[in-house]
């Protein structure tokens, strides 16, 4: 357990699980999105940790991936929250339990 990579990987795994718990169990759609953001961040942490302790850090691949991922997450948050606002206007609710119009 001397390798510091283990610590970061475990931290990232727990963060991923917490984010997933938020996405799967919370009732409010905004918090589902928050959970997804946390999962994305856990993945980013993994990329940076593997880049730092991996065999060839001078290639900067992990850093690049995280930079693009941060940009992507910003776009995702903007569109996701706009969708939630549009749904709220239509159904007057943000609860994922009540958005069941497609149910047969």
């Amino acid at each position: 357990m001397s390798n510091p990579l283990v610590g970061y990987l475990l931290l990232s795994a727990f963060l991923f699980a917490i984010g997933m718990a938020g996405a799967l169990t919370r009732r409010n759609a905004i918090l589902v999105l928050v959970g997804i953001e946390l999962m994305l961040n856990a993945a980013n942490l993994n990329f940076i940790a593997f880049w730092r302790f991996g065999p060839n850090p001078e290639a900067l691949t992990g850093v690049m991936f995280v930079i693009f991922s941060i940009g992507l997450a910003a776009a995702e948050a903007a569109v996701g929250l706009a969708l939630i606002i549009a749904i709220y206007r239509h159904y007057k609710t943000t609860s994922v339990d009540e958005m069941d119009q497609l149910k047969g």
Partner: peptide, 29 residues
């Protein structure tokens, strides 16, 4: 982890932008 640029970008995008978006969405809904 020695990734200074990514750390600052994280602060700028997440703390400065995404969190504000989330807050606005909460207030608007």
């Amino acid at each position: 982890l020695n990734a200074q640029f990514v750390g600052f970008a994280q602060l700028l995008v997440y703390v400065g932008a995404v969190s504000i978006l989330v807050v606005f969405a909460i207030l608007l809904t």
